[in-house]
Simulated assay, not measured.
Amino acid sequence: MSNKSRSDSPEEAFRREQRGVAKGIAAAIGASLLVAALALALVPAPVAPEAGASESIAALLPWLAPLGLPLAGGVAAVAHHRFFHAGAIEGGDPPADRALAVARAFLQNTLEQTLLAGLAFLALAASLPPDASALLPVFVLWFVAARLAFRLGYPKGAAARAFGFAATFFPSVAALLVATALLLARALS
């Protein structure tokens, strides 16, 4: 039986879903902070401390391949669905095709998140001290895992996908803020 009671008003159901989303966001932020802390504590620096931003960016570039895997998976899921369903093969958007709607929504959100993460990680690679650049592959792998969590939760509703969304969105925003702060600190010094 679902946790949704038959006597719930639409407002009560909305509030319950909001609480589920808030719990997913809190869990994602906590897990993301834990991943970052573990990475800081356990991941050795692959770049010599005297290296510059170009070496850090060069070390990150191969990691853009796994960063793109969730996006490629989203494209493949939409293409696969269209190929095997008569109402969707012509590129249409059949209104009753929930599976296609979920695949397209995942793809759109993953496109947005991948672009944001790619910009954030490149900016961070250029801004961090070289010995901290070892964190970036960990962040990429966390992004991929979080996108998988988002995809698995997507058909189950907002609360079920909140963790995966937040675990990709908030680390990217944090990376952008850190990179911007470091840029401004260098510009003002």
Rank of each mutant, 00 (worst) to 15 (best):
N3D: 15
S7Q: 11
D8T: 01
D8L: 07
E11Y: 06
E12W: 02
A13I: 06
R15A: 15
R15Q: 12
R16L: 11
R16V: 10
Q18T: 14
V21G: 03
V21D: 04
A22F: 03
K23H: 11
I25N: 03
A26D: 03
A27F: 02
I29S: 11
S32I: 07
L33I: 09
V35E: 04
A36V: 11
A37D: 02
L40V: 12
L42K: 08
V43P: 00
V43F: 02
V43L: 14
P44E: 10
V47H: 01
E50N: 06
A51I: 05
I57K: 02
A58I: 01
A58P: 00
L61V: 15
A65P: 00
G68E: 03
L69Q: 03
L71Q: 05
L71T: 07
L71Y: 11
G73Y: 01
G74M: 06
A76C: 06
A77N: 08
A79G: 03
A79F: 04
H80D: 12
R82L: 09
F84S: 10
H85Q: 10
A86K: 14
G87Q: 12
G87D: 11
I89M: 12
G92A: 15
P95H: 13
A99E: 15
A99K: 13
L100W: 05
A101E: 10
A101N: 04
A103M: 09
R104C: 07
R104V: 10
F106N: 14
L107F: 14
N109D: 11
L111Q: 14
L111N: 04
L111K: 09
Q113E: 12
A117Q: 11
L119G: 15
L122S: 13
L122M: 14
L124D: 04
A125S: 13
A126W: 05
A126L: 06
L128N: 10
P130W: 05
D131I: 06
A132R: 14
S133L: 01
A134T: 00
L135Q: 06
F143L: 07
V144C: 04
V144R: 06
A146Y: 03
A149R: 13
F150L: 14
F150Y: 15
F150T: 01
F150A: 10
R151F: 13
G153A: 12
Y154P: 02
P155F: 07
G157V: 08
R161V: 02
F163C: 06
G164A: 11
F165R: 05
F170Q: 05
P171F: 10
P171H: 09
P171V: 13
V173T: 01
V173W: 01
V173H: 02
A175E: 04
A175M: 11
L176P: 01
L177E: 03
A185S: 13
L188A: 12
